[in-house]
């Protein structure tokens, strides 16, 4: 009686042990190095395995994230919250490179830029751009209708009461959604660590810029000539900083006659006082 009971238990146990041991051994021998970020990312995801991201399940999406193939905000279920967590995990490792953030290179606020007309259409930049190119005199600047604000999954870009969108450098993950959405292409990625930016996107000639905006780049090239690092280039009636060489000396910020270059002049004063 006991024998009848124990024999199958014994043999099935032996078989189980054999296969289990074999698999345990095999998992050591055939161990594949997995990106350590992948399990972390997997925990940050909702775990619904819905496939909404286009990958077969959260696991596969986490692996793709770790490999940098999937977009940070690719999970439609988790939304901004999950995307933030994912960005945190990936951001820590991305610090080795330069952290980039989006920047609206336009300072054409209601005070600075002249209105050419009134716009009464759908409050969407793309619509407005098709209809009339926007209400502002400058055809290259921010229209301030907030399309970027609505596509941002991180709540990191907002149209201020001044009429121009501004990026929150803390929240921005450089996902590029606003850059794609902006019909004026006035948003670009800049290194988060740099503080000097040419805030103008106008490719108009100096005279036209002057007529439509008080803080536009008029193409005088004073910044180009004065830059000690020769890191400002000039093309299409617009000056452009090559961020790699920029030492944030603030000279261009001081020299620009239209104050189209934003920087930290207080830094300059500090260093002068120190000298």
């Amino acid at each position: 009686m006991t024998g009848e009971l124990l024999t199958p238990v014994f043999w099935l146990g032996i078989l189980g042990l054999l296969f289990g041991g074999g698999l345990a051994y095999a998992s050591k021998v055939f161990a594949v190095e997995v990106d350590p970020k992948a399990p972390l990312l997997k925990d940050a995801l909702p775990g619904a395995n819905c496939g909404g991201c286009g990958y077969p399940g959260c696991d596969a999406f986490a692996v793709a994230l770790a490999a940098g193939e999937a977009p940070v905000n690719g999970c439609p279920v988790g939304g901004a919250e999950t995307a933030e967590k994912v960005a945190d995990i990936l951001g820590a490792s991305a610090e080795a490179g330069e952290r980039m953030i989006a920047r609206v290179i336009c300072n054409g606020t209601f005070d600075n830029a002249k209105e050419r007309s009134k716009y009464y259409g759908v409050m969407d930049c793309r619509e407005a751009n098709i209809a009339s190119g926007g209400s502002k005199g400058c055809q290259y600047g921010c229209m301030g209708l907030g399309t970027c604000e609505r596509v941002c999954p991180f709540d990191a870009i907002h149209v201020k009461e001044t009429g121009v969108a501004v990026v929150d450098p803390e929240k921005c993950t450089a996902c590029g959604k606003c850059i794609d959405a902006c019909p004026k292409m006035v948003i670009t990625l800049v290194p988060a660590s740099k503080g000097v930016h040419i805030d103008c996107n106008s490719k108009d000639k100096g005279k036209d810029v002057k007529a439509s905006c008080s803080v536009g780049c008029i193409g005088c090239q004073i910044c180009v000539k004065n830059c000690p690092e020769k890191t400002i280039s000039f093309a299409n009636n617009l000056a452009k900083i090559e961020y790699e060489g920029c030492t944030e000396c603030q000279i261009c910020v001081q020299k620009c006659p239209t104050k189209a270059i934003s920087g930290q002049l207080e830094k300059l004063k500090e260093s002068k006082q120190a000298q």
Partner: peptide, 14 residues
């Protein structure tokens, strides 16, 4: 079933 399950696991690893 025990054999097949272990086998598939093993094949997957290999």
């Amino acid at each position: 079933i025990l054999v097949i399950a272990s086998l598939v696991q093993f094949v997957e690893m290999v």
